[in-house]
Simulated assay, not measured.
Amino acid sequence: MLSRTASELYWMSRYLERAENTARMLDVTYSMSLMPQIDADNSELIAPLTITGTHDPFLKEYGQINMANLLDFFVLDERNPSSIFSCIKGARDNAHAVRGRISGEVWESLNATWLEMKALRKRGGASQDAVAFFDWVKERSHQVRGATFGTILRSDTLNFIRLGTFIERADNTARILDVKYQVMKEDEDPVREFYRWNALLRSVGAYEAYQELYKQAPTRDLVAELLILRSEVPRSLRASVEEVEALLGNIEGDAGREPRLLTAVQHAKLRFGTIGDLFADGLHAYLDQFLTDINAIAASIHKSYLEAS
């Protein structure tokens, strides 16, 4: 496979996963914005900007941090490369470039999503029913992913598509956890504390998994264990890294020795890690190191497979 083709498949899925992750992040932020405000600094509203590293560009364009401006910036603003509009456009453009390598069902689903997104942006309707829009983004992402897994030949085409998905997912889950653990100080109100952790779990699609595995009210330590060390949870760091390791092993050729090595080391840390390891130097330090490691893996994948030789 040509490196350019591999790159377009990889980024097609990364952009689509990023759009879904952004919708999930905004969903929990929107839910929290409906609660009585207890933080004078609007830390809950600032969290999405911190997670995506877009605080300064947002303030330059919008000035005031409120939910309406956040929705416009993260949903419809094409100047924001991480907006849902920009991500769906990026996914569709990359899919168009590799139209001959993906199935008709994948292409039709992605193209229809893009056309609906353009129509919605023209109407400016995302903020009118935000929750329904977030559900639509997640539904379309699931649809494209299902068509991909159900119709594309088990070959390097599928390997690179799924590789992009899990690299993006690992990065996003770590960022959400890192920022949320810094923002979500222990709340004296147990009802509000319960609601906050439930909202965080729902933002990564892990609420039901937590209830089944722990059968108790969410706590900071158990949520960290669930989303970092538990391989049963599809969006956990361990599950994502396990998928990356398996996919790299399936790709033909000898070009990927470095990313395979880096991924195997990271997988071992997660597989044999304990909840005590997460908090030994503080969870922020742990997640910061993980983000450094996963970005090193992504850079190595780019160098080994996606750059023209």
Rank of each mutant, 00 (worst) to 15 (best):
F74Y: 03
F166E: 00
F160T: 08
F149Q: 09
F279H: 10
D254S: 13
F134R: 02
F134D: 02
W136K: 08
I301R: 13
L115P: 03
L76T: 10
I294E: 04
M184F: 11
D277H: 07
M25R: 03
R162D: 00
K303P: 01
R230H: 07
S86W: 07
I88S: 03
S300T: 09
W107G: 06
Y195M: 13
Y207P: 00
I65F: 07
G150P: 09
I228H: 12
F73N: 02
T148W: 08
M35P: 03
R101F: 12
E252Y: 14
A112P: 01
L237V: 01
L34M: 15
T173E: 00
M117C: 13
K138R: 15
G282C: 04
I65V: 15
V241L: 02
E243F: 04
P234F: 01
E252G: 14
R123W: 07
D293Q: 07
E78K: 15
A23V: 14
H302Y: 10
A308E: 15
W114F: 15
R92H: 09
H142Y: 03
A199L: 13
C87A: 04
I65P: 05
A6T: 11
K215Y: 05
R230P: 00
S309M: 10
E168H: 00
I297D: 08
K303C: 05
G273V: 09
S304F: 11
A112K: 06
Q128D: 06
S141K: 09
D72G: 08
S3R: 05
Y181I: 02
Y305C: 06
A23R: 07
H142K: 09
A296I: 02
K138I: 04
T219F: 06
I176M: 08
A255V: 05
D135N: 06
W114Y: 10
A47Q: 11
R169H: 12
H284W: 04
K138M: 09
L247Y: 14
A174S: 15
A246R: 09
I228D: 01
L70G: 03
E168D: 04
G282E: 11
E17W: 00
E212F: 08
S33F: 07
I161M: 15
E252V: 15
D77F: 07
R192L: 10
